[in-house]
């Protein structure tokens, strides 16, 4: 079974490809949805096409599947009507699958289930990465505010942090917001670092 993954994000496609290879599928190709990707796809004659549901190129792909004369068998979106949960899970995870006419449901379903799991795992990774990035930038803001206080009010690092924290608590705000306000004010007053 030849599986083509249409994906722009190199990382997500790799995560999916790995999973499929581990499960014993070995005829897998990754095509980014750019330029003449439709022509490439036609030459590959895939049995299953997996694509991010959120990809803006889905309309282009569907049009090609509709009018292509190069593909021997028509390809349509895979939907298992006996399984509403599966449809919901695929849409939630952002997976769309197109399958050639005549391919049996039992053969496609494991591929789709695997894609859903891998897409979800990737989304979780992405969220964790974003959270880590946010934490890092918050850390930097607080550090800068601390050094402003240390310089201008001759406080120790510990006292500077305690002052930020107590003002945040008194104002019912997050420390990072108070720190940001302090930096802005300090910049405006020309006393920044």
């Amino acid at each position: 079974m030849r599986i083509v993954i249409i994906d722009d994000s190199g990382l997500r496609a790799t995560v999916l490809e790995e999973g499929l290879r581990d499960a014993g599928y070995d005829d897998i190709h990754i095509v980014p949805p750019r330029g003449a990707f439709v022509a490439r796809l036609e030459r590959m004659a895939p049995d299953v096409v997996l694509m991010d549901l959120g990809s803006p190129s889905r309309d282009t792909l569907e049009e090609m599947l509709m009018v292509s004369r190069a593909l021997a068998r028509p390809i349509a979106m895979f939907v298992d009507h006996s399984d509403d949960a599966m449809i919901g899970a695929a849409i939630d995870a952002g997976v769309s699958a197109y399958v050639v006419d005549g391919l049996r449901k039992e053969r496609v379903k494991p591929v789709l289930e695997l894609a859903v799991r891998r897409f979800n795992a990737f989304a979780k990774m992405q969220t964790e990465l974003d959270e880590a990035r946010t934490a890092l930038s918050e850390r930097k803001i607080i550090d800068r505010a601390k050094s402003i206080l240390m310089n201008q009010r001759s406080l120790s690092e510990q006292d500077a942090y305690a002052l930020l924290r107590s003002s945040a608590m008194n104002q019912g705000k997050k420390i990072v917001d108070v720190a940001q306000a302090l930096i802005t004010a300090s910049d405006l007053l020309g006393g920044g670092l």
Partner: peptide, 14 residues
């Protein structure tokens, strides 16, 4: 971002 996705969201009750 695509009409296909908008259509699927409607047709499958999302």
């Amino acid at each position: 971002t695509s009409w296909a996705t908008l259509r699927d969201r409607l047709v499958y009750g999302q």
